[in-house]
Amino acid sequence: MKNEIRFSLNGKEETLPGDPRRRLIDVLREDFGLTSIKEGCGEGECGACSILVDGRVIDSCILPAGAVEDRTVETLESIRETERGEKIVQALTRGGGVQCGFCIPGMAVSIESLLRTNPRPDEHAIREGISGNLCRCTGYQQIVEGVAAIEHVEGDNS
């Protein structure tokens, strides 16, 4: 057993600080300052803490940090700088998808995860894709419409 736990975070190799049993959300928010990740429930229900692990959306509030060893973690901080990320941001802002905004970063990460496997989702697929992200403000419709209007972006779907 080695004592150093390595993982890739937003494209950079990093070493996991502290105990591997810590919740990944705490590590990312408090040690790496990635505050796009929100804590809404701490029980895997709301999706505000969504991140990508190996390209798929996961709730970071119920994931032990050690579980990302040798894996790739991406947060909205890096996603928003990509072409598709920017389209997602615009889809949310232009169509009235943002109200209080607390659920929105997690929503954006779920949308990114969805578009990587399904670049042209229909309404049902979008609703399915964000079904783990609770929003108490918008009623979802504007978000769904915004995503449906996103043009397909060729990109790294790995």
């Binding site: 049993r21 705490d26 701490g42 895997g44 032990p64 579980a67």
Partner: peptide
């Protein structure tokens, strides 16, 4: 522990603390 989706809810940790395992 595999996905932790049961364990980390059942042994839920307060923000910034370790889950009581």
């Amino acid at each position: 522990l595999a996905g932790a989706t049961d364990i980390y809810v059942r042994h839920r940790a307060a923000t910034g603390t370790l889950p009581p395992l």
